[in-house]
């Protein structure tokens, strides 16, 4: 278990339900700062829900109930009076399918910054370059920043979405199966850029396969039917799981 002091994000006894349908039960988890944390488990285990609790994207669903606390830098992000928009600027998110907004590459990357305070052209320009570089997309698009984003390949679109999140200079980056629609080469590029990013950013990823989880993991948590079965540092869960269920899942006996 991560020392709670060094955790960027902490789940304190979190249970979550859609109506009467409980999808997370008593989750206790600390997510280490500036590392890649892998949340994995079979479909319906609640990993996406857990991820969406961190940027409060689940607020959109009707009739949900949350007990326990979710802390970011020791502050309860569900406390009354929390500025949700500000929270989402600190916690970026990349979805399973690349979702470029209708518009140019430039428009996509700078969408977030122009929503808020940053208006100076020089700042925006440097942010554009920086974000695309950090997402390992700059070299491929530097000559066509003003062409429509949907002309990029799927892999490029997904890295564009990562760049779009990075332009907000987030402290945390959430990724929900970001490579599920991508070919192996694009997947490798995305993974590479994530390993670069962990130096400046806390990354939480739901991998699209156990193997991807094993490749990326600095810390991992295995979820099953809404329960956190096991968690551990490095590749421990993938190489030497302690719980029988984790072992069965990572060795492919079920899932």
């Amino acid at each position: 278990m991560v020392d709670p002091i060094s955790a960027k994000i902490r789940f304190e006894d979190v249970s979550y339900a859609y109506g009467k349908d409980t999808v997370l039960r008593n989750i206790k988890l600390g997510i280490p700062s500036n590392h890649i944390t892998v949340l994995f488990g079979p479909a319906g285990s609640g990993k996406s829900t857990l991820l969406r609790l961190i940027n409060r994207l689940n607020d959109l669903a009707d009739d949900t109930s949350l007990t326990g606390r979710v802390l970011l830098d020791d502050e309860d992000i569900y406390a009354a009076g929390t500025d949700v928009a500000a929270l989402r600027r600190r916690v970026g998110m990349v979805f399973a399918l690349p979702l470029p907004l209708p518009g140019t590459i430039r428009y996509n990357v700078l969408y977030g910054p122009t929503l808020g305070s940053i208006q100076k052209q020089a700042d925006l320009d440097s942010l554009l370059v920086q974000s695309l570089q950090r997402a390992a997309l700059w070299d491929e698009v530097k000559d066509r920043l003003d062409s429509p984003a949907n002309r990029l390949s799927g892999g490029q679109q997904q890295r564009l979405c990562i760049a779009r999140s990075l332009a907000q200079q987030p402290e945390v980056l959430l990724l929900d199966e970001p490579t599920s629609g991508l070919d192996p080469i694009s997947t490798a590029k995305v993974e590479e850029s994530l390993m670069e990013l962990e130096r400046e950013c806390t990354i939480v990823i739901v991998p699209h396969s156990v193997q991807q989880g094993a490749r990326l993991s600095d810390y991992a948590a295995f979820l099953l039917m809404g329960e956190l079965v096991e968690q551990g540092p490095d590749k421990q869960l993938f190489t030497a799981p302690k719980d029988k269920r984790t072992e069965d899942y990572v060795t492919g006996r079920f899932g």
Binding site: R88, F95, L97, L99, L101, P102, Y111, R164
Partner: peptide
């Protein structure tokens, strides 16, 4: 819907998403 979700996830308000993405589309 995804466009609205992306807007919210980037810290945009509902209205910003409507004005900048949904209405033009």
């Amino acid at each position: 819907t995804e466009f609205r979700t992306v807007n919210l996830s980037l810290g945009g308000s509902r209205w910003q998403g409507i004005r900048r993405i949904v209405l033009p589309q």
